[in-house]
Amino acid sequence: MSANAATFSPASQVVARQTDFFTDRHVLVAGELDDLYPVELAKVAASVRVFTTHYGQHTVLSRSRISSHFGAELCAEDAKGVDMILLYWPKAKAEAEYLLAMLLARCGKDTEICIVGENRSGVRSAEKMFAAYGPINKYDSARRCSFFWGRCQNEAPAFQLDDWFRSYPLTIGEQTLTIRSLPGVFSHGEFDQGSLLLIENLPALSGRVLDFGCGAGVIGAVLKARYPEIMLDLADVSALAIASARETFRENHLEGHFVATDVYSSLPESYDFLISNPPFHAGLKTFYAATEQFIEQAPAHLNEGGELVIVANNFLQYPPLLERCLGGYNIRAKNNKFSIYHAKK
């Protein structure tokens, strides 16, 4: 696979033009990576390791010879020896700020950094955001992407995960909960209207329940507070989401089981209810594959008579899929933006 392979993202194609920065360096790759470019990079670098908050990316990388570290934060041990960071700029500005603060605190002063990203991701703000750490310069621009090099000349402040959680109160009916979330997590600092419509139109729950794509644990927290007897699993592909949901449950003295998973890959159990406000964005792209897989494989993960309830934007074409995979559905509620789809096995 050549460095110009079409399988690489535009951002990685730009990185491939700048391999001199990485030759014989100990490189840590992080951020919005959505290909296997680190495998190519390992041909010129002294070593390559990846820090990722995305479980699917971690799983794919783990099958290669690249060392992959999955979690909400990089531990100091895994940052040892790193002298170059390659950061793929995430679309959420707050997440970019979070990653810079964490990676530079872990890797330390004098670490060099290359930042790459699509211009529409806001990567141009890297210059302003990095200014507190040291100098940074733009070195390349191609394929609607920008590439920067910088050096951490100033001691980065100590990084504490707790400092990055944002809290907000949520009142649903007679329930008031405190939601805790990290940057880059769906519902970070706010409650979306799709989730509200879903919560207001759920059937009575019992048995084993899955909150798929749990984000900050908003839906799951309401479910557990409303139905304390259910056995609840909260699943997400994002380590930042899992950490947020866990913190939300701790804050509200609720019990749940938290699972990092790529759709059903780490969920062997069958459920009585599959509940979801499923994601349809991955980075800057509209991305339906995970939700389509969630629906298609639902029958294999539902007990007999089990139920699937999801909220979706009205423009998303899930009804034919529900019809084909579960034999039918009904619409429990609908407004000008969202529909609540309900299907039984």
Rank of each mutant, 00 (worst) to 15 (best):
V50S: 07
F51S: 00
F51T: 08
F51M: 06
F51Q: 00
T52V: 05
T53Y: 13
T53G: 02
H54L: 05
H54I: 12
G56L: 04
Q57N: 06
Q57P: 03
Q57E: 11
H58P: 11
H58Q: 08
T59C: 06
T59P: 02
T59N: 13
V60Q: 12
V60D: 13
L61F: 14
R63I: 02
R63K: 14
S64F: 01
S64P: 01
S64H: 06
R65S: 10
R65Q: 12
I66K: 00
I66C: 04
I66Y: 01
S67H: 15
S68V: 11
S68L: 10
H69M: 01
H69N: 13
H69E: 07
H69Y: 11
G71P: 01
A72P: 08
E73L: 13
L74I: 11
C75L: 15
A76W: 12
A76E: 14
E77G: 12
E77R: 15
A79W: 00
A79P: 03
A79Q: 13
A79T: 09
K80M: 08
K80F: 08
K80G: 09
K80V: 09
G81N: 02
G81H: 03
V82W: 03
D83S: 03
D83F: 02
M84W: 09
I85Q: 02
I85V: 13
I85P: 03
L87V: 03
Y88E: 03
W89R: 03
P90V: 05
P90Q: 10
P90A: 00
K91H: 07
K91A: 01
A92K: 13
K93D: 11
E95T: 12
A96N: 08
E97A: 15
E97D: 14
Y98W: 14
L99N: 02
L100R: 05
A101D: 06
A101Q: 13
M102I: 09
L104D: 07
A105I: 12
R106K: 14
R106D: 01
C107S: 02
G108W: 00
D110I: 05
D110H: 15
T111Y: 01
T111D: 01
E112A: 15
I113E: 10
I113A: 08
I113Y: 01
C114H: 07
